[in-house]
Design a protein around this nucleic acid. Structure first.
Lengths: 190, 190, 190, 190
DNA sequence: GATGAATGAGTATTCATTCAT
DNA sequence: TATGAATGAATACTCATTCAT
């Protein structure tokens, strides 16, 4: 008597998450190329072969992780989904941004790995560019409504600053003065 | 025959520069792991074996490139070597920063590769942290002399912003509004 | 309940045939090694596990297919089972040979795969050699009764020719002039 | 002081031949898929890595072997290169055919492996079809000049017979009555 | 009988590095 | 100094087979 379809689905879902989480941590700490499939499997407590039951190959695994992360980002960062940020929403967003940064440093490390570095997976790059573009547009609208003279440049600068903060934070989480920086930003840009 | 020795030295120096320049471009465009020694040798027009006459191994080559880049950075960014930035000097520095960014995009790509991502070469990381620290200190002194209430946080924020700008620039050089951003920064921080 | 047992038996028999037929086609088109158990199961619409309820392993499946094919060959090619071919029987046999060739090209492809090439399954080879030997003996007796001076050589040549025809036919079924060849052979050897 | 270009060329040529000869024997006896790169390297007394200095991959190695074999066939089988066979030439050709068969049974085994079986290498197939076509045309011209009523069918039949003979020979070299068969063919077709 | 998740040994291929010339 | 043939350890990926359900 085989398992029911639902049972199989549950097994698959759990295992997939486990593999993705494990791989995320390793990719983030050692980099994509330096992380071996064997090490992922070992750390996840499964066989190498099983990994290929869930992901076509190493790149597919990487892509899946990034995609899921970007989806989470989308969900959490645009509260009312109207694409327009109020003054309170920008404060909330900055708050969420720092929270996410501290919650899941591994994802952000991977995010920058992809963003800056090697053309690891082209498909991811496209998705990434779109996400970035969407944020810039939201910021631009925000600064325009605030009467800024060059809202596009201000938006790009604001985005770059957030990137820079994230990057410096992940490079040295212990020494980075998160709270002070957060306050300064809110004061400066709200 | 001292001249002959000198000539040899010149040849060596020239070859070394050639290899480093070639490797820098490949590392920056394809990443450290994805760049093979063979491809460097081929692009530089030398044999694989010769490369090992000049560098101990692939990591040593990487490290040499980063070191040289950081030295150039040092030279160009602190004009009078007194570790103190005047208002004019900070404008000059910002100007130089953008100039360097546009002059040598490959180096910056590599810089971020190392900064954000994989612990490619530990020795480089130490050198990098020192450079960053020095800059932050200079910025801090500058903001303190300007009467800023929390000069350290402001310095970190300023540094992060420059990082973020550089990162976004190299991610998409054609679309990044360099000049507008430069103006805004000078106005904001001078 | 003997009927139920019989029904089970029928189900088993049907499934077994289904698997064998499916595997035959895949083995013939892609080769033994390049055909995966997964692909057989998928094409047959069953699970991988079930396949192992019917066959011990991949080789056993291969062997079963070849055995069954050779049995069919035996049945169809020696009408009166007396081991002696009359002139009419040889015409009938040639006719049957071409009919089988056209009916089941997949089996013949597999047959030659085993015959010529890799020692895929040793057990099959023995069975194969016996079948071939039996045919040669029949041919030899036929040519001897016809007064041929070297009936053994003639029989081997005749057998080789049939093999060669089959091989060329399966290599290029569309272009091979089956009917003309058949006529020529009957004229030549009857 | 590096070796001269000629020295390198000699080394490469010798090594390439060694690898091809070794691989031919293994491919022929065990089949393409069942032969591992490791086993080829080991038998040839070289490292696995070196093999990839000479051939792009396993398929490229296979293709190279078949190509070279077909070129040898071309050289040996059409003495005066005019594409026309005289009565003496066909006798010579048959003679050469049997000589080649006995000289290099490994190549023929491989030849049939490719001919009959798995679509190992598509490029080889095209080359093979062309070779076969050329022979058939030569035979057809020969039978036409001899006044045969259906020279094309006769040519195909003749080609098929040679194939069948080769196939039966390699399947069982010790038992196959080579000389008797050769005589019969010459008598029948000259 | 039937399922498909799980295993792990096996394989092709890559590439930094060495070294004889 | 310079070359490139040679090595071998490392790695992604495959697939026949098992087994809990």
């Amino acid at each position: 008597m085989p398992r029911t379809a639902q049972q199989y689905e549950n097994i698959r879902e759990g295992k997939k998450k486990l593999i993705m989480r494990t791989a995320l941590e390793l990719f983030a700490s050692k980099g994509f190329h330096a992380t071996t499939i064997s090490s992922i499997a070992e750390k996840a407590g499964i066989s190498k072969g099983l990994l290929y039951n869930y992901f076509e190959n190493k790149e597919d695994l990487m892509r899946s992780i990034i995609y899921e992360g970007l989806e989470n980002l989308d969900k959490l960062m645009d509260p009312d989904k109207d694409g327009v940020l109020t003054s309170d929403e920008i404060e909330y967003m900055i708050d969420r941004f720092f929270a996410l940064l501290q919650e899941d440093i591994s994802f952000w490390r991977l995010y920058f790995t992809v963003f800056v570095q090697e053309p690891v997976v082209k498909l991811v790059e496209i998705r990434l560019v779109n996400t970035v573009k969407k944020y810039i547009e939201m910021f631009e609208a925000y600064f325009r409504s605030g009467g800024c003279e060059d809202p596009y440049a201000e938006a790009v600068l604001f985005g770059a600053m957030l990137d820079g903060i994230a990057m410096n934070y992940i490079a040295n989480p212990g020494l980075f003065p998160v709270d002070k920086i957060k306050k300064r930003i809110i004061r400066k840009f709200k």
